[in-house]
Amino acid sequence: MLNKLPITNKKAVRVAYGETLVELGGLDQNVVVLDADVSSSTQSKLFAQKYPERFINVGIAEANMMAVAAGLAACGKIPFVNTFAVFCTLRAGDPLRSVVAYPELNVKIAGGYSGVSDSYDGATHQSVEDIAIVRSIPNIKVIVVADATEARLATMAAAKLKGPVYLRLSRAEVPIIFDADYHFVFGKAHELVPGDDLTIIANGYMVYKALEAVRILNQKGIYPRLLNMHTVKPLDEEAVLKAARETGAILTVEEHSIYGGLGSAVAETLGQNYPVPMKIMGFNDRFGETGGYDEVLAKMGLSAEEIVRNAENLLTKKAKR
């Protein structure tokens, strides 16, 4: 189920996603794919090559793309809309809200290049606000993808779900955490590592960082539970509350602003039901910047070492209660 650390086998999430679009295209004639002139970035070009008649390139017009998708969905199609996460949630945010989410149309929104995975292009092309936006809009289901294996399973799941789904994807080539036996269940947290000292809840590429952190913590005699919270909305509140009751402290880690993302969702649940010491790790109300992917993340405090440090702090807080 879980590949052993260190993981040397890597694959780009976007490539796995593009391949899955092709697979879906063969399974369902109603699947149509839209892109706004970034199909070689998002890898929707793989679908375009196989099914050109079902591929619609609207040019550099993201809002138009989203509203065209609404029209297609209203007539029974299953459109997958592709562009960078920052553009499909902000440029196309108005049609996403009003003609996709409000009428609950069956549009799948693939937010490519999320977080700082497009690290060298800098803050304008990165996205650390997208989850906060889609999570606050009713009727949108939100999935954050951790690796290539999960990209395929989440994309297949999104196609089967009725209504709008936001798939948060990545440009990066990241370690393949999950092997072929991985069972992805939409809406259910996946426990990667059992443990009782505290719980680390992560998603996206941060799941891998958290795995590295767990290994270091284990060497120090600390045994955290690790949950992969791939579905941010609806949140698996049961798993969060169970973790709070059984481990007494929660650390969330995400490649997103500390406002409005996974950490916020977890805090909303804990605060209203079962408050325990918690810490939200993410972008501290700031934009990303140019640099190597792991370098930028580390500068923002998103590294295995920082996860270890925050876990230890939380354990101290928990002990003082």
């Binding site: 149509v32 008649e53 079902r54 619609i56 809002a63 138009n64 989203m66 509203a67 065209v68 998708a69 609404a70 029209g71 297609l72 969905a73 209203a74 007539c75 029974g76 199609k77 459109p79 108005d94 049609p95 009003s98 003609v99």
Partner: peptide, 17 residues
Amino acid sequence: GLGLSVGAGMALAAKLN
């Protein structure tokens, strides 16, 4: 402004179907 894009999507769906 959104309705013309929506209409284009509906017309595209008609072509595809």
